[in-house]
């Protein structure tokens, strides 16, 4: 069972920093018939108290999942760093859709640029890398949620392990 109300952050400082780094971010939710919806997010910020995570979605590319989240469905978000395969998954019983606030667009663009540099260093072409992150300039919304469970998801023996709060 997930915790219903978090009062102290599940995310440690290093984890929070990881979420804002050069990571691929993918979200999932579902509709009333439990058909999963999926979308890529473009950047992330974590509140100073690490209780809230906001990820940014391109509106035109994410209609289904935004509908599902607006209807109150739960959310899962996976953050994976291409160079190291280090992966974390966060889950919450629900999420709030909000307009971008001041500085959000800059975060989206900076996260996009960092991700482009990361994957180009791995050998992906510049054209591909830029096209992949181009939606960071789309009409966008923030999806805010309070992580109620954090899972280690780096491929290997510990994948899937639920992580306990860290200082």
């Amino acid at each position: 069972m997930l915790q219903t109300k978090a009062t102290s952050p599940l995310l440690g400082a290093a984890q929070a920093a990881f979420l804002g780094g050069p990571v691929a971010i993918n979200l999932a939710s579902h509709d009333a018939a439990l058909v999963p919806s999926i979308a890529r997010a473009f950047g992330c910020r974590v509140s100073a108290d690490r209780l809230e995570v906001v990820v940014f979605l391109s509106q035109p590319r994410s209609r289904r999942i935004l509908d599902d989240l607006a209807a109150g469905a739960p959310i899962a978000a996976v953050f994976s760093r291409p160079a190291t395969h280090v992966t974390l998954q966060l889950k919450a019983a629900g999420a709030r859709i909000q307009r971008l606030t001041e500085g959000d667009r800059e975060i989206m663009l900076a996260c996009g640029a960092a991700f482009i540099a990361e994957i180009m260093a791995l050998g992906y072409s510049e054209n591909f890398s830029r096209a992949l992150m181009a939606p960071a300039g789309d009409d966008a919304v923030g999806v805010a949620f309070t992580p109620e469970a954090v899972f280690e998801q780096t491929p290997g023996p510990k994948a899937g392990m639920r992580l306990e709060p860290k200082p």
Partner: peptide
């Protein structure tokens, strides 16, 4: 060449997303 992503749902409705 590019990792894909899969979304699934548990019996209690909690989604899961993985590379």
């Amino acid at each position: 060449a590019v990792p894909a992503t899969i979304a699934t749902c548990a019996a209690d409705g909690m989604p899961n997303v993985a590379k």
